[in-house]
Design a protein around this nucleic acid. Sequence first.
DNA 1: CATGAATGAGTGTTCATTCAT
DNA 2: CATGAATGAACACTCATTCAT
Lengths: 206, 206, 206, 206
Amino acid sequence: MNMKSSRSLKPRKSPRQKRSEQMVADMLEAAAQVLERHGLEGFTTNAVAQRAGVGIGSLYQYFPSKAALVAALMRREEDIFHAAAAKGRDMSKGAEGLSAVILACVRQQLERPELARLLDVQQALPELKAEVSGPSLLLNIIRVILDRPDLPRQPCQDVAARDVLAIVRGLTDTAGEYGERSVSDLYRRATAAVFGYLEAMATLND
Amino acid sequence: MNMKSSRSLKPRKSPRQKRSEQMVADMLEAAAQVLERHGLEGFTTNAVAQRAGVGIGSLYQYFPSKAALVAALMRREEDIFHAAAAKGRDMSKGAEGLSAVILACVRQQLERPELARLLDVQQALPELKAEVSGPSLLLNIIRVILDRPDLPRQPCQDVAARDVLAIVRGLTDTAGEYGERSVSDLYRRATAAVFGYLEAMATLND
Amino acid sequence: MNMKSSRSLKPRKSPRQKRSEQMVADMLEAAAQVLERHGLEGFTTNAVAQRAGVGIGSLYQYFPSKAALVAALMRREEDIFHAAAAKGRDMSKGAEGLSAVILACVRQQLERPELARLLDVQQALPELKAEVSGPSLLLNIIRVILDRPDLPRQPCQDVAARDVLAIVRGLTDTAGEYGERSVSDLYRRATAAVFGYLEAMATLND
Amino acid sequence: MNMKSSRSLKPRKSPRQKRSEQMVADMLEAAAQVLERHGLEGFTTNAVAQRAGVGIGSLYQYFPSKAALVAALMRREEDIFHAAAAKGRDMSKGAEGLSAVILACVRQQLERPELARLLDVQQALPELKAEVSGPSLLLNIIRVILDRPDLPRQPCQDVAARDVLAIVRGLTDTAGEYGERSVSDLYRRATAAVFGYLEAMATLND
DNA sequence: CATGAATGAGTGTTCATTCAT
DNA sequence: CATGAATGAACACTCATTCAT
């Protein structure tokens, strides 16, 4: 993982044309697959290019560096995620909204567990720290939902939101490692943990 | 991170003599420090040897590969951990025991957050997957504690134990990332999450 | 600087039409500017095309290779040069003629010092060695001038002509490196060196 | 010629031991030969290592970068040079001293013409500009010699010294390009040029 | 046994050149 | 013709590992 630093992580060309868009999408999917199948060790730019069926040079036309590729992949996953989670935000009942978000997390994780885990790891790399919006979008959504009146009042919304995410992430990551496949089962447990936490915290504060 | 695979990860020599024992300990601590201070990127065998004040050759005398070094480091952390957690197992009250384990986890994490996080990451490397006893020791302890009559009955003790650990891990890792320093605060939240989860799961099953 | 070898260095099309002529000129000037501003390191065909405001493909339509582009640029500089030097050849007095040539050299050098220096360097590339007419045109002019009766007789006109050029080149290149800007000053010194050499050589031979 | 920048150009280890010294010497000689035989194009770190009969890794143990290797090679040539030139400084007669220096230059150049020329070229690379002491040592020697009373007084010693070197460099480089082999012949001409210049400059100033 | 010089496969990245549009 | 996306050979450099001393 030797990436040249100090370089923009933005994709090189805004893919306006259909061709480019498709190419970028292909490369990202290839990156995702290489990461899943061969792990961090096998995750080389050349491998990604090969899997995408393009020359290594092409990859570098769209992503100025390996770090940029990883960042873009993270953004992609974020976006899928965010779309699902956003629905939760629009629900009037906080409990329903939160459940929807949790379900989205569980689904995402169980669909591509290795990918999710490895991206989580990468997020801590110095080059990526700032670049990627991080889970802040998701955090914001959760913060908003936690404000709904039907949910137990939390001592600190920020911390609560962060913890909710942390709990779900811990559960899903571990589930992924153990090869769990059942969405409904994991969903049930994650919900239990989150709501259990929220209630316990609310009680604690009285 | 290019490690030759298919190689035993056991230390090369059972360090019977005092000198050797000390050396191994020094190397492990050096590895821990390099990992903490310079991250995955800077975690090279040469750097570890240098920090330990020994030749690279010596390092390879005690650890047949980088993976073995990492494995040993994990075992070391495990052991520290296990010692603390074991006390929880010996308490009669399940709630107290579980709290003790949680406290140990939180302490461990907040003491050397980066180290814990990075080791977590490495745990998934194929070479290490099987080798390291994994969190199973800890898991066993938790399983035993969950059997105590004062704790809510769980549908499946194994899954519950795993989830408890996952929840704590998620919370502590995230806390580490956010630079949290307060043991008591994090401990309170982790306890809330775990007990909240256990109760919710017990209720769910009725 | 990875140029495919064994390829004609002649421009691909004799630019009969105005448009083409202009394009070739633009490209050459772009090449000159890139070379000056970004040095050998930044002198890439893509950079040249971009600066010229044309597609990289167009550049290759007019120059079959990077070497050909460099060769053409050399020829361009040669030509500018030659025009100035030719005036010297038409003067009746040898001393005046030679002075005119020297002045032309000095001017050329101080105007675009980096360009001149870098082209000098390239001249030695194997692909360019033969292709470029070389300084032979200039050499011829100097040979002719050295024949004028008012100049000291040289043991060997060919060598003398070559040396004269070498001396001027050495002085101007060095001056360029040191950032000299005064034409008159450098001109004075170059004249001194050249005439000093001619006289000394003539004396030597008596 | 893509060298990572911002890196010390000092050799990595001061070769105190015989082995290291020999190795460094071998690598430098290998670098010189590759540069001579294959030109700038073929001058790759791998080629140098291969010619030296060592692994590429070894090369990088002694030189932290390609630029450092080039710098060291320059210093080596400098030193050989300097030793020869220093003798000229110790002669009482300025004319003799200067002649000795010129002879040294000519010899050096005709011995390994390509090497000298290519190193001259590299000297202008940004990474090397400051690092290499440059011709300043030689310049200093010449400055000192020019002070001898038997040599014509110059308007500016600094400029004169620089010009003397420039003239010799111009002549020797060109001679190298034309494949000249006769030291005595080139020496005669270089002397003529230098002394001719000095006298002419002295006269000019009266 | 300790050492660290030596190794070289493997990494990220560049850039001259081609060719389908 | 003009274009620029695509290509891939080649490069500088790293680091896990070995082995002669």
